[in-house]
């Protein structure tokens, strides 16, 4: 499942770029970096919940749920409202490929 999703996202990215596609960065890399201010570089902390290395489905489902709930006093529920389904999927895919430890960068 993860591979299929990645391949699908990759296809989209290739279509979005032009001649120099040789060096196109992984899809979702820049988008997912919006998470790092609160969840650490590559989502691996230190910070709020570690979000690196979970399955695509787990991250995606959680983000969609948060987006649908009344934010109240929960900043993440407000934040999740800033992304489309496709963007949440790209973020989830990229984060799922990151190591759950911070590679010593803590």
């Amino acid at each position: 499942m993860r591979v299929l999703l990645t391949a699908a996202a990759l296809g989209l990215s290739l279509m979005a770029t032009s001649a120099g596609a040789q060096t196109a960065p992984p899809p979702g890399r820049l988008l997912a970096s919006n998470c790092y201010q609160c969840h650490g570089t590559n989502g691996a902390g230190p910070g709020f919940d570690s979000i690196a290395g979970k399955s695509v489905d787990e991250i995606y489902k959680e983000l969609r749920e948060m987006r649908s709930e009344n934010p109240g006093n929960d900043i993440m529920k407000a934040h999740a409202r800033g992304y489309t389904d496709e963007q949440l999927r790209q973020i989830s895919t990229y984060l799922s490929q990151q190591r759950s430890t911070s590679s010593g960068r803590d």
Binding site: S18, G20, L30, N34, C38
Partner: peptide, 14 residues
Amino acid sequence: GGLPPDPAPVTNSA
């Protein structure tokens, strides 16, 4: 790498 920038950047403030 000879590529144009990401055509749809997203940023956030908190």
